[in-house]
Design a protein around this nucleic acid. Structure first.
Lengths: 305, 305
DNA sequence: GTTTTCATTTTGTCCTGGACAAATTAAGTA
DNA sequence: TACTTAATTTGTCCAGGACAAAATGAAAAC
């Protein structure tokens, strides 16, 4: 077992998993295959990772999330990794909103309350719909890019997510209308941790008069099915972040489609769904927020009150 | 790799780890030593845990948390386990709120809006502090119990969590005061998915005049450290659900304590922390919400403005 | 009688090295 | 160009052994 006082030497494998998000098995198999990381060993033969190797692992993880492959980058030097990050920066220029610099500063200095006020002002000025499409979508994208480039810490990104949550939940609570039609059940599959997309969908549908019921993230398939059939639900809407494996999403959606009664519609939104429509018969793929409005209109056209 | 279509057959070992909080290695070694769980095997020889075994593992997990030892309970039948739980429950009776039956009905029928209204009314009637201690804590406990006993579906539990989120975030946003002291950074370690405890802590501290900055769940240790030292933070407060492995929590906390400057206090709250104080020198373990208030008072006594 | 010390289980985590299927890329074919 | 097929990459799982931290119980000292 790991020593409590592992500070001077380095971190145990469990601590590195906690720090980097890379599973223990993956860390061991990389060591075997690529020769990195190459941890020291303590008296008991257990792995001890020096801080610099953990830093490099964190860098690698960023590039992995970007779509690069381990064999290309695990063996690379730290300088080469930095170069790759630079290349990624030029390849995907983020269309940041006008006051991006100010907002980034707030995130960096952990000024959550001020950040929330800024978002709230923008919401009041533009209305919920335009706040979503014109501010939140590009802003979230820019935050992701900034994190990728190392310009924004994980803490800054978390702070941003948290404040967007606050603003959106407040807006949804205030929209007033209840009990409309259709009745939409919102959730995500297991292993999908990102709740922002879900919340944006709710913020999109609720003011349009739909009755939204959100179950949050990570509802097992069987429970989605049970909840939909028991609750008089018209539409089941699922959200997928770009990190979600497309294969799992397609597989799960088709299974769910087969198990749900035909009169319940199934919608799938998020980056991971962009080009999957033809693999998803009987399922409405929602490309972006505008398309969500369109899907709602379609449903209503097919179901006159 | 795990297929998403594992609902009818059972769950893979990774899914069971996520569901029960029992690490993969522990599941395997129990099977070797005690003969339980005894999962089926798929075509590839990989473990497939039937739902009933997972249910039993959850029961066992609860009893473990109460101090019983694996060798005594892993071999027991489900009935015996239920009996032990019943005995434990009588020893520590959870006082379910008066309108428990009504609320359970709302959860069961997926009536989110009505559930939220009921919670909101209770909040207005009792004030935030008493709403937390007298309603939310026993209610959340009762929800957990009902889920364990199979009286409440996963969807029902998710719905409850979602509505509590809405109510608490609203309450925190409305409390008014800003910029007080101390400045508290709230978050959880990676692998900790439960955000309710975190929100409750924020709802507890914010109205007392503390300046709360929440990063949501799952912040890597290194980023907690960076955020705390950069943001003029006085106190770092971490929340642990009962499902979080105590070992990981203790280890991570001690590591963090060693890395943080001495003038920043470190608080740890949640069920997982109940009896860990002596393993956590220099860290303030917060036993319950009242104790949180006490910790705040202590800090202020030691740091006169 | 209470606390302290020491030996004995119990228990969780880590180890090695092998295996395999899902995901990805490359090559071949219509 | 679009589709199928083969090769490679990659993450997760497996078995069974090992060992230290924690818990328990027994003995000794206060």
């Amino acid at each position: 077992m790991r020593s409590l006082n592992d500070q001077p030497e380095g971190l145990g494998i469990a601590a590195v998993e906690r720090d980097t998000g890379l599973p223990k098995d993956t860390l061991r198999v990389w060591e075997r295959r690529y020769g990195f990381p190459r941890p020291l060993r303590d008296a008991n033969g257990e792995r001890v990772y020096p801080a610099e190797q953990v830093d490099k692992l964190r860098l690698i993880r960023r590039l992995l999330d970007q779509g690069l492959r381990p064999s290309r980058i695990v063996a690379a030097t730290t300088e080469e990794l930095a170069q790759m990050l630079e290349a990624a920066r030029e390849a995907a220029p983020a269309a940041a909103p006008a006051d991006w610099g100010t907002l980034l500063g707030l995130m960096h200095r952990q000024e959550g309350a001020a950040l929330q006020r800024a978002l709230q002002q923008n919401l009041l000025k533009n209305g919920l719909q335009r706040f979503l499409t014109d501010t939140l979508v590009p802003l979230t994208d820019a935050v992701g890019q900034a994190w990728l480039k190392g310009e924004l810490s994980v803490a800054g990104e978390h702070l941003y997510t948290e404040q967007v949550h606050n603003v959106l939940r407040g807006a949804i609570a205030n929209h007033g209308a209840h009990g409309g039609s259709p009745s939409i059940l919102l959730t995500t599959f297991p292993n999908e941790l990102h709740s922002l997309g879900l919340l944006m969908a709710e913020a999109l549908f609720a003011p349009e008069g739909a009755q939204c019921t959100s179950l949050g993230t990570q509802t097992p398939l069987a429970d989605i099915e049970r909840a939909a059939t028991q609750g008089g639900i018209d539409v089941v809407a699922l959200s997928f972040s770009s990190a979600y494996p497309a294969r799992q999403a397609v597989d799960g959606l088709n299974t769910l489609r087969a198990r749900l009664p035909a009169h319940i519609a199934l919608w799938a939104g998020g980056h991971a769904m962009r080009e999957q429509q033809r693999k998803l018969p009987g399922i409405r793929v929602i490309a972006d927020l505008q398309d969500g409005i369109a899907a709602l209109a379609e449903w209503r056209a097919g179901h006159p009150a």
